[in-house]
Nucleic acid binder design. Sequence first.
DNA 1: GTGGTCTAGACCACT
DNA 2: GTGGTCTAGACCACA
Lengths: 138, 138, 138, 138
Amino acid sequence: MTPPEPRERQLSADLFRVATGTSEPIYRQLIEQMRRLLAGGQIQPGDAMPSVREVATALGVNPMTVSKAYSMLEAEALLTRRRGLGMVVAAQASGSADVEARLELLRPGLERIATEASQLELEPKAVIALLTSILKGK
Amino acid sequence: MTPPEPRERQLSADLFRVATGTSEPIYRQLIEQMRRLLAGGQIQPGDAMPSVREVATALGVNPMTVSKAYSMLEAEALLTRRRGLGMVVAAQASGSADVEARLELLRPGLERIATEASQLELEPKAVIALLTSILKGK
Amino acid sequence: MTPPEPRERQLSADLFRVATGTSEPIYRQLIEQMRRLLAGGQIQPGDAMPSVREVATALGVNPMTVSKAYSMLEAEALLTRRRGLGMVVAAQASGSADVEARLELLRPGLERIATEASQLELEPKAVIALLTSILKGK
Amino acid sequence: MTPPEPRERQLSADLFRVATGTSEPIYRQLIEQMRRLLAGGQIQPGDAMPSVREVATALGVNPMTVSKAYSMLEAEALLTRRRGLGMVVAAQASGSADVEARLELLRPGLERIATEASQLELEPKAVIALLTSILKGK
DNA sequence: GTGGTCTAGACCACT
DNA sequence: GTGGTCTAGACCACA
């Protein structure tokens, strides 16, 4: 159903979202998103990352914060720096994972939800109904 | 349906759990848990809170960290300090909220899950199945 | 009557004084001073607060003590945190109040004085004379 | 104008007032009040103090707190313990001081008021007017 | 450089 | 026993 794509693709800054007001550091939010987009296959080895400046202005964030995220991803060998050309998703970056592996990445968040729901004395049924409506609304 | 309880109840430190490895500050985790337990009705106005030292040792955390959480809850008027005797859940603390209000407290977390699921290219069906199994397993 | 000032003003740590030997906690003294300086108009919304470390060394106090005051003022929405840049007086911070409102802030202290004067069997005239001389001497 | 009084007088618990909600310890408030009442001559050597229990219930305070104040006053030799009969104001307790000495006891509080007034940018005239009205209203 | 969080340990006020 | 305050010092996130 999806058309074949050229080997080198320019990624857009719109891929990333940050939640300000959370205590979770922005640079870590970016790193986690990168990992998920890679696991989900929306980012492929060889893709060109949007520039630091582009992401920074799109998110309203300091460029150094984005730069830090990129550097740490480079240290993990998920990104490769091409001098003067920007960052590229590394060829060795593990591509899309299978469904079970990706679901496992979601598990910690869901377990947290379950804990909160239990503290709120909420029925599983109600929680699932709300999640369903949110997932469908996307 | 629930049997009548003595007016003053001594709460246990087991009510609280902290997740190490998260960037969310411990004191804030405690505050959020208190709010949820109150909204869910598991903590009632008039209940005696476990002592700072008790919670600190139960969680393996510095007493000042727990004290900070208690202080901020006192500033919010959710807790009342009885000098020399410990903290009590404030009479004015809004007791258990209705289901809709409690579900709203869960919404931000679920929206985050939805975002992550979409980045992982996961089908709603799979996500809901996993949440269901986790909720049932509790 | 006052000359126009640059929009962002850097406040000095000299604004704050702490009284050692009082049982009133240092961090609370700082909070009360901030409120008065704001009500009196000596601090304006948009002003940049002196850094935690600066105030701490100026007062000979532990940085955490100053930080606690700043945090509580932030919780009250009197201060806004600019990550990595310091604290700013919040735009929503109610600026200078009118004379009657400011006098009301002084009333509790004056009532305490009146009680003490009555216990000391002092004539109003003598008390007022002393206060006058102190106020003029400033 | 005041009639001569019998040598031994039973003092009332109404002499004391405490401000809850202040950070100043209650026992210290009591001690300071005793000193002022003595300096002002409202309490005389030989007077019988109200019992700990009486003061405690009148002020809504824990008896041990009152007891602590009494003990410290005894340690200062301002009170004498008569076994089974309660506390008496010590004969050696320095009686009423002259006006200048009593005014000096009021000075620290007035200096604090002056500092606060200056931070509130209040005119001496306004502050004095408010104090006058409070003193007259007593 | 900025503020935030946490620890370990001390002392205080109050019951 | 209760909580509160303060210190000294460490590490983190952000600019």
